[in-house]
Design a protein around this nucleic acid. Structure first.
Lengths: 222, 222
DNA sequence: CAGCTCATGAGAGTTCACTCTCACGAAGCT
DNA sequence: AGCTTCGTGAGAGTGAACTCTCATGAGCTG
């Protein structure tokens, strides 16, 4: 995957006039296309660097994207926002991610799969995820809300419970989701590898075990 | 507990010769005392700033401690190390922290108490803890191992299980401790407040619930 | 074609985390 | 008392995260 987004030729940056309802309306012209391409180039460059396990800095991304640092900051308020978007683009949707277990109604099986999936993905993009967490954890003032990809996954994995536990005891289901938000997370992975000294595989296995336990307990108690 | 350690007067900085086994041996002299005092002053200043909820920077700490920034870096390799020590000093020992439940043999009760205790403490020193996590999560190369105060607490809280679950199924006990390491943590607190949008009280309550669930499940299964 | 708009680049400036060097001066030694 | 040791301060330097300003030039408009 190249750094510059050359899937469109240079010609595309010129605007085209479009006839609509008898009025001549300017289609998103060169300026818009240009902005789109610049933005894409920056994100692509960031993603490139992320995968290369090198340290991600704004100067490095800007240089790789062939834009000035000032321009990069025009499109993203800070490094964390940029990384967040770059990472987000690599995640499949919850439905896609959980496709292999879509036939199962067993919430425990589904959540185990979701946990493994998320943590392995985090592991792959470790450097960038660490940078995002590092930045988000100190400055929660500006709308630097973390993406919260985990929530979509958890909701989707627990969908079978909506009709059962969710009906009988909605508060319990909500609590279960909160419980899982702590475990099905990058923070959990890093806690297990960095502090507990586990190998990545062992860390994932441990988190999966925890997620299963919590879910099973909630179902049993619910 | 006071911030500055003025329990020793200025006079103590002069060294004293001590008679030992007929030989005149230099006691830790002025140089050593001086170093001790400098180190203490830096940590005290850091603790002062930590409690003031202001942002903790090395220049600020150095200024407050009345030393140059260079000196601060001579005593602590980086800001994170300094903050870690400053925070550590505010934690009671696990035995002290869990004194109110020392008579209980119920691991669930004990772990619930420990969780609440830790998370409330973290909440108090939020700024510093966030800074430490932020720093540790990106650079785990240098001996920047996190203090791991949680492990002592968890071990102590689960002590009653050593004779029961620990005998029957040591692997299960080890797994339980790993499970809890993820939940009884500053990271869990910040996940619940920052991402789930819970109030500090609700976040603590949620984590306590999770810890209880996990522990109870391990005991029941063990 | 002339003119205005606006994305971009260049570069200076600020703050902080560090690092390194040099010189001062007090503490300790003989 | 004189010499040495060494804790410390001062200050320069690097690199990164941002912020701001100004000039350029390409693109659209009349």
């Amino acid at each position: 995957m190249q750094v510059n987004s050359h899937n469109e030729s240079e010609l595309d940056l010129r605007g085209h006039a479009v006839e609509t309802e008898g009025m001549t309306i300017q289609a998103p012209a060169g300026r818009e296309n240009q902005k789109q391409r610049t933005r894409t180039a920056i994100i692509d460059a960031a993603r490139e660097i992320i995968q290369g396990s090198a340290e991600v800095t704004m100067p490095a991304v800007a240089k790789a994207a062939l834009v000035s640092e000032a321009t990069a900051y025009r499109y993203f308020p800070d490094l964390v926002s940029l990384l967040r978007e770059a990472i987000d683009g690599t995640f499949p949707s919850p439905a896609e991610a959980l496709a292999p277990v879509e036939d199962s109604d067993d919430a425990v099986v589904r959540i185990a799969f979701a946990t493994e999936r998320l943590l392995r993905h985090v592991q792959t993009y470790q450097g960038a995820v660490r940078a995002v967490i590092s930045g988000s954890i100190v400055r929660r003032d500006s709308a630097a809300t973390r993406p919260g990809y985990r929530f979509g996954l958890i909701d989707h994995a627990l969908a079978p419970l909506d009709a059962t536990l969710g009906q009988r005891n909605p508060a319990a289901l909500r609590q279960l989701k909160r419980d899982l938000a702590v475990v099905v997370s990058a923070e959990a992975l890093f806690t297990l590898t960095d502090l507990c000294g586990l190998s990545p595989d062992d860390a994932v296995a441990s988190a999966v075990h925890t997620a299963r336990t919590i879910t099973a307990a909630a179902i049993a108690a619910g």
